[in-house]
Amino acid sequence: MSVWAAVIGASLGCYLLKLAGLSVPEELLNDRRVARIATLLPVALLATLAVTQTFTTGRHVTVDARAAGLAVAATAQLLRAPFLLVVASAAATAAAVRLLH
């Protein structure tokens, strides 16, 4: 699958999910198991993405400048910094670590 096909296909999938919420019978989405999974899924996937994007390079598990970036970002997040500052602090930290090496 090319990147373009993925862009179009996933966009269509995301649109149909949005439309489904407005269209499908309420009982289906009110099912407790469905509701439970829908609460867990975004949180668990975002956590997984944060971890894998920090500690893997291709198929290798690595600890590098990105880990320092994530640690600083976590601190900024705990201090309730705005989104852009959290992201920028991670990038700046990783850049500084690489510069010092």
């Binding site: 990147v3 949005k18 829908a38 993405l49 893997t56 390079t57």
Partner: peptide
């Protein structure tokens, strides 16, 4: 990160499931 576009698309759609509940 070198993942296939299919895996990328599937993850994007999985993350989009919450929007269905917003629609409700």
């Amino acid at each position: 990160g070198g993942g296939s576009p299919v895996a990328g698309a599937a993850t994007a759609v999985l993350l989009g499931t919450r929007n269905a509940f917003y629609g409700l």
